[in-house]
Simulated assay, not measured.
Amino acid sequence: DLAILSMSEHVIITTGSFGWWGAWLANGTTIYYSDWPRNNSTLSKGFVKEDYFMPHW
């Protein structure tokens, strides 16, 4: 599945690692839900978006 994703020009990802790797391997246009994690949630404490989402996404 990742091999097929790597040949894509556009990827829509979820917040999981499978989608992240598919988007990274594809190296094209990536669409993701940018309001994750929600502000003031337990996941948002210490979370730096730039560490997870690539700048060109």
Rank of each mutant, 00 (worst) to 15 (best):
residue 54 M to P: 00
residue 48 V to F: 12
residue 9 E to T: 14
residue 19 G to P: 00
residue 57 W to F: 02
residue 20 W to H: 11
residue 31 I to K: 03
residue 13 I to M: 07
residue 36 W to P: 00
residue 39 N to C: 07
residue 39 N to Y: 13
residue 7 M to R: 13
residue 17 S to I: 15
residue 51 D to T: 08
residue 3 A to H: 11
residue 5 L to A: 09
residue 53 F to Y: 07
residue 15 T to K: 09
residue 1 D to K: 10
residue 51 D to E: 08
residue 40 N to P: 00
residue 34 S to N: 15
residue 16 G to Q: 06
residue 53 F to W: 06
residue 45 K to Y: 12
residue 12 I to A: 13
residue 45 K to R: 14
residue 57 W to D: 02
residue 42 T to Y: 10
residue 27 N to I: 05
residue 46 G to K: 06
residue 38 R to T: 13
residue 13 I to E: 01
residue 53 F to K: 00
residue 45 K to D: 06
residue 51 D to R: 12
residue 40 N to Y: 10
residue 10 H to L: 12
residue 47 F to H: 13
residue 2 L to C: 05
residue 57 W to R: 01
residue 24 W to A: 04
residue 13 I to F: 02
residue 12 I to L: 15
residue 37 P to H: 08
residue 30 T to P: 00
residue 15 T to S: 11
residue 10 H to C: 12
residue 42 T to R: 07
residue 48 V to M: 10
residue 48 V to Y: 11
residue 32 Y to L: 06
residue 28 G to L: 09
residue 10 H to E: 15
residue 53 F to N: 02
residue 7 M to P: 01
residue 28 G to M: 12
residue 30 T to A: 02
residue 20 W to P: 00
residue 10 H to Q: 13
residue 55 P to G: 03
residue 22 G to W: 00
residue 40 N to L: 08
residue 52 Y to E: 05
residue 1 D to N: 13
residue 4 I to M: 09
residue 47 F to P: 05
